[in-house]
């Protein structure tokens, strides 16, 4: 295994803007690209599955005559998500389920493996958990303002994740991904027999289906912001760091203090 990033080692001089550092360890890089593929398949096949019954309900039951909180039946002739975003592109619930329920295994095994590694290696505690000071409103507000002005951390400050990154990655890892998996399992009549507490925790099978859709929406939102940030922060450097691990620290801005 490669060495973890060591931003605060005293023996070596602190890296500065322009230096090439080792940013991402191999489990992070492997899992990142596995997710890129898996989540694309899950989303596209999931939208096709949604097309089969484009209504969402709360509670244990819900069908056409029951009140729905989201009803897209009148959108696009009853097939709300168009072919360019679904897998397959023409209507097939059976084929979409084939993809969804096979790639679900990759998602679950990848997530369990990565969560296990992140816990044992200390990645979760050291690099992803926000420090108390970072959660202070003043610090959060400062980071949000800097991001909004597209002034991203530079030099040694770019060695570790900033608090907004930590919150975004942590939400994906701890909330949204486990959330999609657990709400997905709660829709299974077999799992509901095995673990009745899971579907109860969701508030019923139709609530689980709604939450599954909302978690997926959260992941899409993350993906859009994530992609925008990569493009704005320097796509070549960012993508290289996720492929090889090498990352060139952004040089300090001239006007930076």
């Amino acid at each position: 295994m490669s060495q973890p990033p060591a931003p605060h080692q005293d023996e070596t001089p602190a890296p500065k803007g322009g230096d090439s550092v080792h940013r991402h360890r191999w489990p992070t890089r492997l899992w990142h690209w596995l997710n890129a593929i898996t989540l694309a398949v899950m989303l596209m096949s999931g939208l096709m599955i949604f097309n089969a019954h484009p209504r969402l309900y709360w509670g244990h039951y819900g069908a056409n005559s029951d009140p729905a909180w989201l009803d897209l039946e009148k959108v696009n002739g009853g097939i709300p998500f168009p072919g360019w975003i679904t897998l397959p592109s023409t209507y097939s619930l059976a084929d979409a389920r084939l993809w969804h329920l096979a790639f679900a295994w990759l998602l679950v095994l990848g997530l369990l493996g990565y969560l296990g590694w992140a816990l044992v290696s200390g990645h979760l505690r050291r690099n992803l958990a926000p420090r108390l000071g970072e959660l202070a409103p003043a610090h959060l507000w400062h980071d949000i303002r800097e991001h909004a002005r597209l002034r991203f951390p530079t030099g040694a400050a770019a060695l570790s994740y900033n608090v907004l990154q930590k919150l975004a990655y942590g939400t994906v890892l701890i909330v949204l991904l486990p959330g999609t998996v657990l709400t997905g399992l709660a829709m299974s009549p077999a799992i509901d027999a095995a673990w009745p507490w899971l579907v109860d925790l969701c508030g019923g099978r139709q609530s689980a289906r709604s939450l599954h859709f909302l978690c997926a929406g959260g992941l899409v939102l993350f993906f859009v912001v994530h992609l925008a940030m990569v493009l704005l922060a320097g796509p070549v450097n960012e993508v290289r760091s996720m492929l090889t691990g090498r990352y060139r620290l952004p040089p300090d801005r001239k006007d930076a203090p």
């Binding site: 599955i49 949604f50 019954h53 244990h60 039951y61 819900g62 069908a63 289906r209």
Partner: peptide
């Protein structure tokens, strides 16, 4: 019991 259609709806 709850009847779960492959399409996604349920009825009890």
């Amino acid at each position: 019991t709850r009847h779960d259609c492959v399409e996604g709806w349920s009825a009890i």
